[in-house]
Amino acid sequence: MSAAKTTQGTPGAAPGDTSRPAPLLPGRGNRSRTRWELLALLIPGLIGLLLAFILPVLAMFRMSLNEHGTAGALVETISIASYQAVLSDPFYWQVIWNTLVMGFGCALAAVVLSYPLALFLVRTTSKWKGVLIALAIAPLLTSAVARTFGWIAILGDQGMINSVLLALGVVETPLRMNNNMFGSTVALVEILMPYSILAMISGFGRLNPALEEAAGSLGASKFKVFTKVTLPLTLPGIFTGFLLVFVLAISAFVTPRLMGGGRVFILATEIYNEATQTLNWPLASALAMILLVVFGLFILLYQRAVKRIDQG
C-alpha cells in the first residue's frame, strides 16, 4: 500500500475493555499473592521516596515551626510565627504573585512555541523523525547553567542582539534585556521548552491523521479542522505541557538568580536568600512549604481540567 495509508486504530475497544493485567503466577489465590508481590515491587521506590522526599519535607515542615531569635539564632519551638510573617507581609504576597505570573508567562510562551513543533514531530512521516525528536530535546543534554550563560551572551548589554541593534543604529544605548524579569523569562522559556515538547508529544495520543482527513472530507477548511478537531484532541497534551513548564518555572532558581540582576523576587530566590544570607531558616522553610502548597493546588486544578476534557 502507499506510504500515505492511514494508520489502523482499534476503535472497537470500549473503555471497559481494558482488562486487568494477567496474574503474574498461576494457581489458587494468586490474586492476593499477586497484590502482595506488586506491593513488594513498589517497596524500593517507596523507600527512596520516603528518604529523599517525605522525610525531608517533614523535616522542613518542622523547621518552619521554629522561630528566628535575636542575632539570627534558631529557636526550637512550635510556632506559626514564620507563616504569619509571610502571610501578613505584602512583600511576600508580591513575591507569590511574581512567582505565579512568571510561571504562567513561561508556561504560556513555552506552550505556544512548542505546540507547532510538537505537532510537526508527531505528524511527520520523515525517516528522520527520531533524529528530529532527539534534536528537539537535545538542549536537555546541556546544563541549565550553561544555557543561562548562553542567554546572557545573547541578551546582555554587549550581547548579540544589542550589538546588532547598536551597529545598525536602531538604538543608541543597549536595551535592557538581561538582569531583569524579561531576560529571566526568555531564558527560562527556552530552557523549559524541551519539557513541554516531550509532554505534548506524549499527550497527543488521540490525534490521528485520519481524523483530520475525515474532517476535511466532511467540508472543514484547514482552519476549521484545526479548531474543531486538532485543537480539542491535543488539549490534554497542551495542559500537560503547560503544567510541567509551570511547575518547573515556579521552582526555577538558577536562571532567575543568574539573569534576574537582583530585580526578580520570586519564591525560589527568596528561599535561597532567607536560607543562606539572612539565615532565617524557619522563614525559608515556611516559604518552601507555601511553594509546595502552590504546586499542589495547580496539580489539583490540572487533574480537574483533564478530567473535564476526558468527559466533555
Binding site: M63, I271, S285, A288, L292, D310
Partner: peptide
C-alpha cells in the same frame, strides 16, 4: 488518553538541603 503524572519535588526543600 494517556495522562502524564508529574512527580513534583519541593524545590524549596531541595534548595535548603543543598545549602546544608
Amino acid at each position: 488518553m494517556s495522562r502524564t503524572h508529574i512527580p513534583v519535588l519541593g524545590a524549596g526543600a531541595s534548595i535548603l538541603m543543598l545549602a546544608t
